[in-house]
Design a binder for these strands. Structure first.
Length: 220
DNA sequence: CATGAAACTGACA
DNA sequence: TGTCAGCTTCATG
């Protein structure tokens, strides 16, 4: 039942928000990696400015960031918040990809690459999966705050690994589907998971679609 | 003007 | 496992 809900929800969101190609087609691979770090707990609009600034200064490459003094990097990434942490994280990531080129990710088994990414400062489960899915093209489903909330609203509890397994089991093991679904969940969350949107959100519509209140409504 | 939320992670009890 | 600090920007009231 939960598995069917996961699939049905994908179709509901897909119909509402469309393909959302911009989510992963925009920017170079390293730009997407930098974006994955900088977007942590921050709005994308702020990240975009910093990415533009990095490009304007011709710093959008692992080598350039690795060679940049930490304090300069802090100044550049400041608009994305948590700037001391993020500057250190971005440097660690830049150093890693200087030694181990971005293209080499496709040669590594998914679980090996995931472990290497998780070992880097500033990369936790979600960011590792974002890089795996949107840069390395590995089928690793991303569980973010909106996904957890969405699951909560469907009466589904679980930690990161459990929710990830649920989505991956419910869906075909397909990179574009995972990419699209995560993008859809975020767009949906931004649109409905605020003060007002709860009663018209996709879970409410899913319930209607199924015609039965088979799961409890979580508190907004 | 004050408050809170935003594509989270790491450290420590 | 759970809690907390880390920081800036922008929308709301």
């Amino acid at each position: 039942m939960k598995m069917n809900d996961i699939k049905t929800l994908y179709h509901i969101l897909s119909a509402e928000f469309g393909p959302l190609y911009d989510w992963w087609v925009a920017g170079s691979p390293f730009e997407r990696i930098a974006g994955a770090i900088l977007v942590q707990q921050t709005r994308w609009e702020n990240v975009d400015r910093v990415l533009t600034e990095l490009k304007n200064r011709d710093l959008m490459s692992p080598g350039s960031i690795a060679a940049l003094p930490l304090e300069e990097l802090e100044d550049i990434v400041r608009p994305t918040g948590f700037y001391r942490n993020k500057a250190k994280s971005l440097k660690a990531v830049a150093e890693y990809f200087t030694a181990s080129p971005i293209d080499s990710m496709s040669n590594k088994p998914q679980h090996v690459l995931r472990k290497e990414l998780l070992a880097l400062r500033g990369i936790g489960n979600e960011t590792a999966d974002v890089i795996l899915l949107y840069v390395a093209g590995k089928p690793s489903f991303v569980i973010d705050a909106y996904t957890k909330k969405l699951c909560g609203c469907m009466g589904i509890q679980g930690n990161y690994a459990e929710l990830q397994r649920l989505f991956e089991d419910a869906l075909p093991r397909d990179v574009p589907v995972y990419q699209h679904y995560h993008a859809l969940i975020v767009e949906h969350g931004k649109r409905y998971c605020g003060r007002k949107g709860c009663d018209s959100c996709a879970v409410a519509r899913l319930r209607k679609y199924r015609g039965t209140p088979a799961f409890e409504l979580a508190k907004p």
